[in-house]
Amino acid sequence: MTAMTLPEITPYTSADHDWLVEAHGRLYAAENGFDASFPVVVDAVLRDFETAHDPTCERGWILRDGARRLGSIFCVREDDRTARLRLFLLEPEARGTGQGRRLLETCMGFARGHGYRQIVLGTHESHRAACALYARNGFACTRSTPIRNYGQALVEQVWERPL
């Protein structure tokens, strides 16, 4: 990130697809030991979003510093009153700089503005910095379940907050 300019939050487009799949695969493998099945899931989520999302109540964003992509977040419809946060990612250089909070606020503001009454997300207990960010922003962990996925023993968590 450049010190002089604040990274821009821009709408997701299909041109971001390959980067987002690659970044998820690369970072989750390096930081969590996830196997090659994880980017396949990210690819499927993005393909579904690109072909079936409702732009009146669902959106994705990319954090950019010039031409460099630094992060992402998505807001999708769970049901009439509930939004789901998905594909929240920050490159290591953008972490600890307030950019995660900016992305989270963008997503929650969109959800609130589109009539959702609550927002939910799924994550893993091992994502401690993300979980701390959620807790600081009014989310509560409502369920923790030990699972085996992506080649790892994990604790899957559901976090929720009213909007």
Results as ranks from 00 to 15, higher is better:
M1N: 01
M4E: 10
L6T: 12
L6V: 11
P7D: 08
I9C: 08
P11W: 14
Y12I: 06
S14I: 06
S14E: 09
S14D: 04
A15Y: 11
D16N: 12
W19E: 01
L20M: 10
E22K: 11
A23W: 04
H24A: 12
R26T: 06
L27C: 12
Y28F: 08
A30D: 12
G33F: 01
D35T: 00
F38M: 01
P39N: 03
V42H: 01
L46E: 03
R47F: 09
A52R: 15
A52H: 08
D54C: 15
D54R: 15
E58H: 03
E58D: 07
G60F: 01
I62N: 02
D65N: 02
R68M: 09
R69Y: 07
R69H: 10
L70A: 14
S72A: 02
I73A: 04
I73W: 01
I73V: 02
F74V: 02
V76Q: 00
R77H: 05
E78D: 13
D80H: 15
D80R: 15
R81T: 15
T82Y: 09
L85K: 05
L87D: 11
F88N: 07
L89Y: 11
R95P: 04
R95G: 04
R95Q: 01
G98M: 08
G98N: 10
L104H: 07
G109Y: 11
G109L: 11
F110C: 00
G113N: 13
G115I: 10
G115A: 11
Y116P: 03
Y116H: 00
Y116G: 00
G122T: 02
T123L: 03
H124G: 07
H124A: 07
H127I: 13
H127V: 13
R128F: 05
A129P: 03
A130Y: 04
Y134M: 06
A135H: 12
R136P: 13
F139T: 02
F139E: 00
C141A: 05
T142K: 05
T142D: 07
R143F: 15
T145Y: 05
T145F: 09
T145G: 11
P146G: 15
Y150G: 12
W159N: 01
E160M: 14
L163R: 02
